[in-house]
Design a protein around this nucleic acid. Structure first.
Length: 306
DNA sequence: GGTAGACCTGGACGC
DNA sequence: GCGTCCAGGTCTACC
C-alpha cells in the first residue's frame, strides 16, 4: 500500500535525508538512483515491515505492505517523528536571512534532522559514533542489528530467501529492542558486536530501560529546560558533552553544539587559519545565535569540507 | 576547572 | 601477513 504524510511547509525530503549520516546506518538504507530511503520497522504488535520512503508532494510518500488501520496510524506517527514533519523553523529562517553563510537555509528548507523511531536507537547510535571513525560506526551498528534485531515478516526480502543477493539480504532486520540487548551480556556484546569498551554502557542502558528503571522515550516529548534535558542524557554512561549535544539536536533542542574533532577543524579553518583551537573558541563563534546555535553550526556553509 | 591517561576498533603504513 | 601507529569522545584520577 502507498500513502502520503503531509509536512509543514517549507519541506524538502532530501534535505532531511541528507541532514546527517543516519541514512547510512542500519536499519536504514538509501537507494541513490530512486532517492528512496528504506527503514525496517518493528511495530508495537511485533510485526516487522519495510518502509520505503520517498519525496511526496509537500510530504513523505510511504510504500509498505498492506496494513491494518491501527498499524497505518502507527506508521504515520513514526514517520512524522522521524522527519519532524510538523516542526516549525520559520523563526530560524528569518534570523539567518542576513547571514551569507546561512543564505541557503530557507531555500533548501533546512532545520529538520533525520531521527530514528525511538530515542533508544538514536542514543545507541550516537554512542557508536564516539571515539571511532565513521566506517567503524557503520559496521558496529550493522552487527548490532544483525545480532539482536528482528527479521522481516515474510516477503521477498526474508533472509531465508537465499536466492536474493547478499547485500539485499542484509537489510532485513529491525533495530533491536532494549529487551533483546538486555537479554545478552556486556561480554557477549563486546566480543560479538566488537564495540569495545562501549559494550557495558550499551548493555546497561538496555537493562535500565527493559527493567522500567529509565523512561528514555519520555524525553522525546518532555518540556524540561534544555539544560535539564542535557543533564538527564548525560546520566547515560557513554554520553558526554558531544553525544548529549548531538542528541539534543535530534530532539529539536538547538542550544548546544556537538563539538567533535571535525567541528574543531571546520571552525579552525573558518576563522583561525587552521591553527589548533578549543571547544570554547567554537562556542564563542556561535554565541550570538543563542537558541539556534546548534542549527547555525550544523547548517553553516563551511570552507573546510574534509 | 584543567589535564593526562586508559579504554577499543579498524584503517594506514612499513616491513 | 604481521606488527606498529594513530584517530576518535568519555570517564576517572589527580593537581
Amino acid at each position: 500500500m502507498k500513502f502520503i504524510i503531509p509536512a509543514r511547509k517549507p519541506f524538502k525530503f532530501m534535505s532531511v535525508v541528507n541532514s546527517h549520516g543516519w541514512r547510512q546506518l542500519a536499519p536504514f538504507s538509501f537507494d541513490e538512483d530512486t532517492k528512496t530511503l528504506s527503514y525496517i520497522l518493528r511495530l508495537s504488535n511485533a510485526r516487522v515491515i519495510e518502509l520505503k520512503l520517498s519525496d511526496g508532494k509537500d510530504g513523505v510518500t510511504v510504500e509498505t505492505d498492506k496494513l491494518r488501520k491501527p498499524e497505518q496510524n502507527e506508521v504515520a506517527d513514526t514517520v512524522d517523528w522521524m522527519f519532524g514533519l510538523n516542526m516549525d523553523f520559520s523563526t530560524f529562517h528569518a534570523a539567518s536571512r542576513a547571514e551569507p553563510k546561512l543564505a541557503h537555509i530557507k531555500k533548501q528548507a533546512l532545520g529538520r534532522v533525520l531521527r530514528s523511531p525511538t530515542l533508544f536507537e538514536d542514543v545507541i547510535k550516537t554512542i557508536l559514533t564516539t571515539n571511532t571513525l565513521w566506517g567503524a560506526t557503520i559496521n558496529m551498528t550493522r552487527r548490532l542489528v544483525d545480532e539482536f534485531g528482528f527479521s522481516l515478516d515474510g516477503g521477498l526480502n526474508n533472509p531465508k530467501d537465499v536466492s536474493k543477493p547478499v547485500v539485499e539480504a542484509l537489510q532485513t532486520k529491525s533495530f533491536p529492542t532494549p529487551e533483546s540487548i538486555a537479554a545478552s551480556s556486556p561480554e557477549y556484546i563486546k566480543e560479538k558486536i566488537r564495540v569495545g569498551y562501549r559494550a557495558p554502557a550499551i548493555h546497561e542502558l538496555a537493562v535500565r530501560i527493559a527493567m522500567g528503571q529509565f523512561d528514555l522515550e519520555f524525553l522525546k516529548t518532555s518540556d524540561l529546560p534544555t539544560l535539564e534535558l542535557r543533564k538527564g542524557l548525560m546520566t547515560i554512561n557513554g554520553v558526554g558533552p558531544y553525544a548529549a549535544a548531538n542528541l539534543l539536536m535530534i530532539l529539536g533542542r538547538h542550544d548546544f553544539i556537538p563539538i567533535d574533532s571535525y567541528a574543531l577543524k571546520m571552525v579552525s579553518y573558518e576563522w583561525y587559519k587552521g591553527k589548533p583551537i578549543t571547544p570554547k573558541d567554537v562556542e564563542k563563534r556561535f554565541e550570538k545565535w543563542g537558541g539556534f546555535k546548534g542549527l547555525a553550526f550544523w547548517f553553516w556553509d563551511w570552507k573546510y569540507n574534509g
